[in-house]
Design a protein around this nucleic acid. Sequence first.
DNA 1: GTCTATAATAGGATAGAC
DNA 2: GTCTATCCTATTATAGAC
Lengths: 196, 196
Amino acid sequence: MPKVSDAHRAARREEIIDAALRCAVRDGYRGVSIASVIQESGLSAGAIYSYFANKQELLVAVAERILDAREADLAAAHDRDTPLAPGEVMATLIEGLRREDIAAVLPQIWAEAAFDPEIRAVAGRIFGRVRNLLRGELVAWVQADPSRVEGDAEEWADLVIPVIMSSVPGFLVQRAVLPDFDEESYLRALQETYRR
Amino acid sequence: MPKVSDAHRAARREEIIDAALRCAVRDGYRGVSIASVIQESGLSAGAIYSYFANKQELLVAVAERILDAREADLAAAHDRDTPLAPGEVMATLIEGLRREDIAAVLPQIWAEAAFDPEIRAVAGRIFGRVRNLLRGELVAWVQADPSRVEGDAEEWADLVIPVIMSSVPGFLVQRAVLPDFDEESYLRALQETYRR
DNA sequence: GTCTATAATAGGATAGAC
DNA sequence: GTCTATCCTATTATAGAC
């Protein structure tokens, strides 16, 4: 197999995912239609179906793209010298979502996960990895100043992690639903809530 | 207008909403089709369209039904003698969702809100009311023992309410996405996090 | 590999009988 | 008010030319 051809195929595939992602941002995740992807990509139905067996496969790739970036954001913010505080980890994730303009799409993917095993598998995998990264930061953060928590750092982390993780869906849902939701105030309250 | 006829019409309308709700629980909120509502209700297309102008109107009514019940759950749990602690308020909401088996549907409604102004209006209205009920509990809870918080009760409540509210979407998303999500442990962690 | 054209179907909505 | 039958559009997916 010639390597250029493979690279070209991969690039074209990404191009299609890009286009589908733009459609999802505009019309919602489930609102993506093949017709809209054709329009947005400038390609044809035939071309798209030569890279993806069906629409579901394309949508899974879009979900993967969106979710993988969350893990990358967190990995990029990691500093081996000074661990991030809980509120900072969540703020990092939220910032990334806002930068990419997918803040409205991510809740749709999570919601879809409850009914679609394939989406659930992707979302669960990335969610788990993000959780592990958060755990690492939390433990290091407590160990940097053990007075922050009474008792064992890891035990504490395992208990509170699910509650802390809730702040991202919570932010996105309230942002979507409440016309007067104050994003900046939320981020400040996050720092406040989990500062010790 | 004869009152019996009106009552009958209202009852039939509820019947259709019930059927659509069962469809949503089974197939997801956006997965509800007129055909499935026909099957589930035992009625015909004509009957359904004589109560709802279109599918959108029916779906909005379903969302209203689901969301209204959240406010009712909270109002029912309210005790004028002993205010609920933050974690108890959230646990009340979560319990109600599990009881009605709509824990997977609610995130879809929120996610839809970002793209559909009508759904957003309904969700925002109820979300605001739930927030107000929570606020009342929180303020009373602090005033019952002012040492729980340093500073003004209302000021504190307004800052932390959005973070506390996050625990419900956070619970539902993690429950949907993580195969090993421990619901009971989450509820315990909630009590812990917001106990003072 | 990509395009155009089209097949196949699902799903929302309406018309007219009863 | 409700049912049956049907129309019509939107949408997924494929076939075959280039």
